[in-house]
Design a protein around this nucleic acid. Structure first.
Lengths: 207, 207
DNA sequence: GCAGCTATTATTCAAGCGTATAATAATACG
DNA sequence: CGTATTATTATACGCTTGAATAATAGCTGC
């Protein structure tokens, strides 16, 4: 009747570990395979503990989704410097690791597939999407203004929609079939495409 | 001890019904909620019948995925007319119903989330992606040639990657948040974006 | 209109699911 | 150093799952 020995995790840390373990399981085994038991094994605890930190498994999964959205968003909103640099970095960040990798898209797709099913996830998604596009739209407004181009709201909106679509689409291509592209090819295509769309150089001189 | 009455379905028809019911359930309840019993109810049969037509539930799901890929692909590859018309129709078809709707993306996402998990689904995905991009690349080669623009393989490849990304990205935006866009807005943005990318009018005169 | 075939139903099974509960080991505090 | 607190383990429960099996209803050909 020996019980396992264990250590009590500091405030909030175990919660974080459980969420991370949830994401690991979802990306490796799918939503279906991310069972409470599997997640507990991954986190190095027993299954019962989940219910000590979360009201239900569903609630834990929803919080895990928030974490995914945050990680996909935060890197891109940390760009600094003049508008041109920020735009360039925004594009590059979203099309290279760690944002662009197969784990990310597995997680993203798993949750997207539930958006129609679960109103909670649906709301989390919508907030994240709007925030992401607004970040891009503001970036474009600054950039166009700096270039002396027309930057009215309607123009920026259309550009933001198009470039958001382009970046998302290339992100997906890269995540799902990265081996079909040469090193840096997707970023290069994105840069020249954005230049063509905006009708302006974005000084992609680092290459 | 009355048994339910039933009718024997003609060759192949029941298979098709089961696959359709599978897709209905996945889009409504997610992969997790698409149980053999739920699928059978949707198809109007009992659960046992599934195993009469398929070796396992997994095999049925894989065939359902093939059906999704086919339905997302076939409409776009049926375009006819001169290269300019075909390119325009290709874009429009992919960004309007029935290709662009919330059911489609739920299904697409559900399967994409499994690509890392299940090698069978992974292979189905890759074939579909390559076929789709090749269709687009051929379309672009014809179009550029007709316009007297350079249409070497490398150029077409880059354009195909970019436009594929753009269309996919806009498709996702439209599917997930269609209410954030005005009627026809996404198609219009796609058309003018492609014109900017290719540096050529695509005679979007129908508008 | 009957005999044979098989598509379909009905029922059962073991395994795995999320959750509930009780025992206990680790820590914090006087 | 002893005691209260609670994070964690261990175990059990009711339910659902995909699958296997046996019984039977509907069709086909003669």
């Amino acid at each position: 009747m020996n019980r396992r020995s264990f250590h009590r995790a500091p405030e909030g840390e175990r919660r974080q570990e459980l969420i991370e373990a949830t994401l690991d399981c979802i990306s490796e085994f799918g939503l279906k395979g991310a069972t409470v038991r599997q997640i507990a094994i991954r986190a190095g605890v027993t299954a019962g503990l989940v219910r000590h930190y979360f009201e239900s498994k569903d609630q834990m999964v929803a919080e895990a989704y928030r974490a995914v959205i945050a990680s996909l968003t935060e890197k891109a909103s940390e760009v600094e410097g003049d508008p041109e640099t920020r735009l360039r970095d925004f594009i590059a960040i979203n099309l290279t690791e760690p944002v662009a990798d197969s784990r990310s898209i597995s997680l993203w797709a798993a949750f997207i597939s539930q958006v129609r099913v679960d109103p909670v996830l649906s709301e989390i998604h919508r907030e994240g999407y709007i925030a992401f596009r607004n970040t891009l739209q503001d970036l474009l407004a600054d950039f166009l203004a700096a270039k002396g181009k027309p930057a009215d709201a309607e123009t920026c909106r259309a550009f933001a929609i198009a470039i958001n679509g382009l970046v998302d689409g290339l992100w997906i291509e890269g995540c799902l079939a990265g081996d079909l592209f040469r090193e840096g090819e997707l970023v290069a295509i994105a840069m020249s495409s954005v230049e063509a769309l905006l009708g302006t150089s974005i000084g992609n001189t680092k290459q």
